[in-house]
Design a protein around this nucleic acid. Sequence first.
DNA 1: GGTTGATGTGAACGTGTGTTCAGATAGGGT
DNA 2: ACCCTATCTGAACACACGTTCACATCAACC
Lengths: 211, 211
Amino acid sequence: MARKTGSHSDITGPRVRAAALKLFAAHGFAAVSMRQIAAEVGVQAGALYLYTPDKQSLLFDLMRDHMQDVLNAWAAEEKPEGPVKELEAFSRFHIRFHLGRPEEVFISYMELRNLEPDNFEALGAMRRTYEGVLEDILTRGQDEGLFDVDDVKLTTLALIAMLNGVTSWYKPDGRLSLARVEAIYSDMAGKSVRMPRWKERQRKAEATQIA
Amino acid sequence: MARKTGSHSDITGPRVRAAALKLFAAHGFAAVSMRQIAAEVGVQAGALYLYTPDKQSLLFDLMRDHMQDVLNAWAAEEKPEGPVKELEAFSRFHIRFHLGRPEEVFISYMELRNLEPDNFEALGAMRRTYEGVLEDILTRGQDEGLFDVDDVKLTTLALIAMLNGVTSWYKPDGRLSLARVEAIYSDMAGKSVRMPRWKERQRKAEATQIA
DNA sequence: GGTTGATGTGAACGTGTGTTCAGATAGGGT
DNA sequence: ACCCTATCTGAACACACGTTCACATCAACC
């Protein structure tokens, strides 16, 4: 029976998660104690266990929810037609989404090794799903002769690494606006995989020659 | 007076560092105890303090030595002429060097936040020096009209992030050889910044038109 | 207005932490 | 043969850890 007034559980619960997010991102999962999290919330350590079964779950829930958010947000995104524009849309989406959640991103890529095996596997599956989106775009672009990609899997990982790197230096009040960063990254991503014009011409020339 | 036979300090010292490297890379600095390191070496925890003043120094020394190795190795590398070939040489060097030291690389980019302020600053300076190498190549290429880079600093960080990403998935016995990975990455890096031919032609056309 | 149940306290449990240090050990120098 | 000293042990220090639990508090309901 949920209380209406005076019930703190609706408030404290999210605050616990917010505190954990902030502290894990700043100092690392292993370096943060339950007492520090409790202090950030303004509560005693024991009270945390009303909102999480243990410290590990606190970490995993943050990571899982974040990955789910990414996947949902991409699913809701409007997709343009053709691999070239899709790649640009993906790059822009990735940069925009990740810059809006620097702490979640940081945790999701830094604390993987602190997950227990089952949780690690579950999160790995979600990550592979997301990478699959990019891999699919590259594959179709390659098939249509629009991209010149040596190895799709490797290129996928290289691009994701590049795009993720943005979170390690971007400051909202920095020199470059979000829009500019978004543009530069998506441009670099596009250029790094697109079929060069001379190669395209050569390909067409060979095709007509054979025919 | 150093012993010749039976002296273990020449042996135990490096073993302590090797154990710390291995364990820090596998589980993270904060999650590894001095007793675990000692056990890996086959010694009691107290003995470690004959080789390091404290745990923090153990981490910092590993990171500083690694960065110094990178800088030295690049200094010793033979450099080709021209920004385009220099960029390729840098990319290939970076991939090759980093894939040969996965643990050092992992630590150097994951454990920065566990460094005390002074150590953090010292390592940051070394990292900026290394990034300066790439930044310099891009700047010169841009000046010579060979590269089409929107923002040199941002592009530097994006490329470094992409190249570093390789360490998070590469397995020596995997599908792709080191040489192939090296080639693909340096190719992507080059394409992502190089001036497109059509833009180059346009630039030259405008130049003659003005003259 | 007394009862109930959600919410939180504060102390305690057992274990582990980084670090120190008196003492054991054993090989090299004389 | 003896001493010296580099090397290491094993116990101890004070403190922090994640987690549990008996108990307090207090708003909402009958």
